[in-house]
């Protein structure tokens, strides 16, 4: 009995620590000023290893990421198009794909970020910059996870004919909000670096550009996240390899009537 109690206590401590990490991710720079007034806030070690915090944030992405994915993918079930047993596959797929989207985007964009940092003479701060970038990803995931109940509530309460386009729109809106907020978070993480060397600001903007450029296409390739009720559930679309930007260009051309498709 005592053994189980001990284990429970350890588990609880782990959870509390996890939430502390989440809190830390959402409050960049909060440690230094606030740790004195908030004793429960565990201050970070001063001299930390480059990968300190990176491991924790990766854990956050992998644990919290699926939450929004699952909520997002539950559309077909909540809206009554499919049974739970049928829709669960889409929920699992979306739950896996959401962290995958973020992790793959960062992996693809990191080499150029590293080389450009070196070339602009910012190499000595690279560990800190990397931590800022990765923490912002964890922040994005946490923000999205916080929206998970909201999107479920929307699915439950929205009972119109056109509920699928509505679902897409609301998800796009939530993604947009979360991304913009995450970039603000990134700016906060970057603030001490920018204070040190103004050039970090340029590097941050370059990172945001590369990240958005790759992330848009990555999201497009990893469709479907919501799962159209008319299409059979699958991990990727039957024809996943299409270019988001080319598609957008075609749409613009179609709408403006310059180039009929």
């Amino acid at each position: 009995m005592r053994h189980i109690k001990e284990q429970l206590r350890c588990g609880l401590q782990g959870v509390v620590q996890g939430f502390n990490t989440v809190d830390h991710v959402l409050r960049p720079g909060g440690d230094d000023q606030e740790s004195a007034s908030k004793p429960w806030h565990k201050p970070a070690a001063k001299k930390s290893h480059a990968l300190d915090g990176v491991r924790q944030t990766i854990l956050i992405v992998c644990l919290a990421g699926p939450l929004y994915g699952i909520a997002m993918g539950s559309y077909g079930w909540i809206d009554g198009h499919r049974s739970f047993n049928a829709q669960i596959l889409q929920m699992i797929y979306s739950g896996v794909k959401l962290p995958l989207l973020i992790v793959l985007t960062v992996i693809v964009s990191l080499p150029s970020f590293f080389v450009l940092n070196s070339l602009f003479g910012l190499r000595d701060d690279f560990a800190q910059a990397l931590r800022a970038v990765v923490s912002a990803q964890a922040g994005l995931v946490v923000i999205l996870a916080a929206f998970a109940p909201l999107i479920s509530f929307f699915y439950v309460s929205n009972a119109t004919e056109k509920s699928y386009p509505h679902a897409i729109l609301v998800n796009a809106f939530i993604f947009g909000t979360a991304s913009v907020t995450a970039q603000r978070l990134l700016a906060k993480w970057y603030a001490p670096l920018i204070k040190k060397n103004v050039r970090h600001k340029r590097m941050m903007l370059i990172w945001i550009f590369i990240y958005a450029f790759v992330g848009t296409q990555m999201g497009y390739v990893l469709r479907p996240f919501i799962g159209s009720p008319e299409v059979a559930i699958s991990f990727l679309r039957e024809n996943p390899f299409e270019n988001a930007y080319v598609r957008l260009w075609q749409l613009v051309m179609e709408v403006t009537g310059v180039m009929p498709l």
């Binding site: 992996i107 693809v108 964009s109 080499p111 150029s112 590369i210 450029f213 790759v214 296409q217 990555m218 497009y220 390739v221 996943p240 390899f241 299409e242 270019n243 080319v246």
Partner: peptide, 12 residues
């Protein structure tokens, strides 16, 4: 890597 990813996913 960026180019390879786009090459993979772009028929254009």
């Amino acid at each position: 890597p960026i180019l390879a990813f786009f090459s993979l996913s772009t028929p254009n």
